[in-house]
Design a protein around this nucleic acid. Sequence first.
DNA 1: ACCGATTTGTGGCGTTGTGCAACGTATCAC
DNA 2: GTGATACGTTGCACAACGCCACAAATCGGT
Lengths: 407, 407
Amino acid sequence: MQGSSHDDVRRHNLSVVLRLVHRSGAASRSQLTRVTGLNRSTIAALVAELAERGLVVEREPSSTNQVGRPSPIVCVSEQVVALAVNPEIDAVTIGIVGLDGQVHRRVRYPTDQSPSVLEAVNIAAAVIDGMRGELTAKFRVVGIGVAVPGLVRAHDGLVRHAPHLGWVDEPLAEMLEAATGYPVLAANDASLGAMAERFFGAGKGITDLIYLNGGASGIGGGMIVGGAPAGGIAGYAGEFGHTRVSASDRVDSAGLRGTLEAEVTRRELLEVLGLAGADADELEQALLAATAPEVRAEVNRQIDHLAVALAGAINILNPQLVVLGGFLAALLAVDPQRLRTAVASHSLDAAFGSVRLSAAELGSNLLMIGAAELAFEGLLDDPAVLPPVRPAVVPAEAPTASGAESA
Amino acid sequence: MQGSSHDDVRRHNLSVVLRLVHRSGAASRSQLTRVTGLNRSTIAALVAELAERGLVVEREPSSTNQVGRPSPIVCVSEQVVALAVNPEIDAVTIGIVGLDGQVHRRVRYPTDQSPSVLEAVNIAAAVIDGMRGELTAKFRVVGIGVAVPGLVRAHDGLVRHAPHLGWVDEPLAEMLEAATGYPVLAANDASLGAMAERFFGAGKGITDLIYLNGGASGIGGGMIVGGAPAGGIAGYAGEFGHTRVSASDRVDSAGLRGTLEAEVTRRELLEVLGLAGADADELEQALLAATAPEVRAEVNRQIDHLAVALAGAINILNPQLVVLGGFLAALLAVDPQRLRTAVASHSLDAAFGSVRLSAAELGSNLLMIGAAELAFEGLLDDPAVLPPVRPAVVPAEAPTASGAESA
DNA sequence: ACCGATTTGTGGCGTTGTGCAACGTATCAC
DNA sequence: GTGATACGTTGCACAACGCCACAAATCGGT
């Protein structure tokens, strides 16, 4: 219930323009006027301010086959980046992601065993320190986003419970902030995946979607409701994996019985295939190639259970799109028709009629992009948080010891 | 991705002020300045404009025990009303609801059998025509909101499927608009119930809640996600009644097996009690008074199934509050502990820890208030849609012929 | 009963951001 | 080259809010 005034308008319009070039890529100034409904002169002023703050760059107009004076192309500055961190059971991955969604660099730091919070923070801090030369020379870092496989309290980045990492009530964001000096935000990995797929993947421009990801450690999910990521009251929303889908006594990672995560597992697919391990693509290929009836039976069993959970979510949320990632995408690929039919049999016609099931598009960069998006959010909401800089090619970093300077 | 300009600011601020006095009741101008963060002079101008448009009235300050000049009380005009319509199996209910949430009048028009769309529209139009003298003399009618027990397409008020009324693809809003001349919006009854409870009932000020209502004809629901009513892509969201909760073959009104609506029914409660019929209060009293073991067993059975559906929704949505209405509130009243324990056993600790289960507060006025809220929404979003009027006590209706007009 | 302190309404003025209109400019088609 | 078209640029007007000074109304204390 906040009132708004002049600088709110400015802030909002800056935010709208920056979001547009962030999400939809480069756009000409005339396109921006059309999409925003703002005046040409206003767009000019807004773009100028964003450029002054080093957030966007105006390029020479590309040769379109249109009459009239060409409009300069506005695109995001390549210098503005966020750091993405993703602790997992067997590694900590750190990435540099540009405001344009490009993953400039990705470092996977394997660990012998599941890292403790302190180990994960130290690894991330060390890797970031190693990058610091590059970061200060070439980039402006907005902050760090962390994608955590577990429940994360939204407002302070406290990891409430990450069963596979064995973390309970760990102040991850605070620790990483202290260790690196950058502002840190953390959220559930699947929620960030949903955001990434929505903006840069299968769900571009869609306002209501559900995302489910199947990984080695279980099933997580996230959703976009009415155009906004839904986090719930504390950020724990999207736990589709713990929906009850059968009356069996199988137990999932949270100790709940008969849930999606208990019934639909990557491990059992690998077992029936006789594989020791496989990444998502290999698993999908193996399933598609398999002809053994027991493989087919297991796939069907999992598809049918998955359908119950999906149908429930579809009835409740009436989404436009369901995105499946990880081994759930493999299940979809093996028998899309069976999955569709099974979902239909458990859902309301009206809700099912408008929904599409599709596989995730963003592969291994999904969580990097999602985590970076989290870090970018503050900037996108209010581009004025970044102080104006001279748009010089080289930041004023005179005392850098390594003499390699190019002016 | 709309840019905003000056009149957007004005519109937004008018909207914020009107919403505040609408939702929180009367407020002094100084309170409005504090809550909105706007300047005193701005609030004065905004309130003046709202008063000029006949939406609010300034009253003499009440005697507070505070030092300083007393601040005038701003409250909603009693003249501004919406009409609420609720077709049911055995009646059509029409109400006049003020912008302050007060139900000025409620007319229940019983029908021999479930009304067709045409019958429902004709009944509503006739009742409204009967009120027309009162409406034009005392009130300014914003529009009509219809609460429909079924799936309603949000943008045009088409009733896709109302199983208990037997309606399929009926252009209800369009018909009622033609019959009455007022703008008509329609939505699912339970979604409107959720909205009403959120703003005026058990969920005041809460941003994430789930509402489930148990009626004679089944179970419907609605939800507020991140402060906004979640309708899904077409307005069908909130169908918690068709969540699968057991492996049984019982069929619900949509033909789905083992769903909440199939397992948890009012009819079976009445049967085990040996009652022919009862309203919500009577049913609750009867259940509380009953000591027979078979009653208790049936209640427990239904509670356990309800818990599965609630837990699933809680895991997915991480709400702050679950509101139960109709006979579901009776189940909660009979054994709140059993329901809490059962929900806990199927949900994640973190999500369950922050959720409260409570009974609906708004009784028989629930759907009247919810439907009216739907009709008010456009006005609250943009108070400038109503033209300015002289705040005279009697609207300038002099030259209308006294005789009946046929158009 | 009076007076200072406090809070808030009121009115004038300044600031700011956007829309608008006129003009300049770059490209395409012929 | 010339006209048409589309777009950037510039100066100006308008609208809305914040700020400031002053007035008004209330409370508490002497």
